[in-house]
């Protein structure tokens, strides 16, 4: 691996629509994230924090600017190469969980491993272990409809970390959860950051949740407004 930072955004802009109706969601973002960090991205709604997150997660493409991931220019990659980057380096946790309906927790967690082509025995073992890590031992054969919101989000976390990704991207992971579940979810995410060295990028609008992060970046109106460290605590 080169000595390039894990992530470097330079002059990223994103424009939706064209002409008069055009909306510039990002107006030039410069950002460097080092491996192992825990970054919270905050800001009011419409500040472009989710747009930035989707670009960081290679789910969306920037209109202009350059995005380097471990020194690779992401905006120059093809659709398939970006899919492979997601497959091998990224894990996602969404506000709405985004689990496959009517599919057991185990099969949901197995999904990224299937795309990686893992043999079935290794796949089952890894998926079970990941579910155990998020405290869902014994819930392997329940489908999302039979799980509470907190449990569903844990399945989503298990699915995200089962591949041991370099980066975990979490978009409002506690947005649909109550305080107790939110704290448990944040505890899990912090643990994976601390114990497994997984870099975490998290969008949130709740200061309580941002407090778990080591670095807090505030977006206002499509630009980075502030970027400070929480200190070494948390």
């Amino acid at each position: 691996m080169s000595d390039a930072p894990l992530i470097r955004l330079s002059g990223i802009t994103k424009t939706y629509g064209r002409g008069q109706a055009a909306l510039q969601a990002l107006k030039g973002i410069d950002l460097v994230v080092e491996a192992g960090d825990f970054v919270a991205i905050m800001g009011p709604s419409g500040s472009g924090k989710s747009t930035a997150m989707n670009i960081l997660g290679c789910l969306d493409t920037p209109t202009r600017g350059s995005y380097e991931f471990q020194g690779v220019r992401v905006e120059q990659l093809s659709r398939n190469q970006r899919a492979l980057l997601r497959r091998h380096y990224l894990g996602f946790v969404f506000q709405g969980f985004n689990l496959l309906a009517r599919t057991t927790a185990l099969e949901n967690v197995e999904l990224p491993l299937i795309y990686r082509g893992e043999p079935s025995a290794a796949r089952h073992a890894a998926a079970r272990a990941a579910l155990a890590q998020v405290g869902l031992q014994g819930w392997e054969h329940h489908s999302p409809g039979e799980l509470s919101g907190g449990q569903q989000q844990r399945v989503a976390i298990a699915r995200a970390i089962v591949t041991r990704p370099a980066v975990l991207l979490a978009d409002e992971p506690t947005g649909n959860l109550d305080t107790r579940n939110s704290q448990e979810i944040m505890g899990l995410i912090s643990a994976f950051n601390r114990d497994n060295g997984i870099t975490v990028l998290m969008v949130t609008h709740e200061p309580d949740m941002a407090a778990y992060a080591r670095r807090v970046i505030r977006f206002v109106d499509g630009r980075v407004d502030s970027d400070r460290r929480n200190g070494e605590a948390a």
């Binding site: 997660g57 789910l59 659709r79 398939n80 899919a83 492979l84 997601r86 497959r87 091998h88 990224l90 996602f92 985004n98 689990l99 496959l100 309906a101 999904l111 990224p112 795309y115 990686r116 699915r159």
Partner: peptide, 19 residues
């Protein structure tokens, strides 16, 4: 709608379009 979301999940997880 459900299928489109499902496809979105699969793509996010790292499935190739052709898969």
């Amino acid at each position: 709608t459900e299928r489109t979301r499902e496809i979105g999940i699969r793509l996010a997880i790292g499935a190739l379009e052709r898969e």
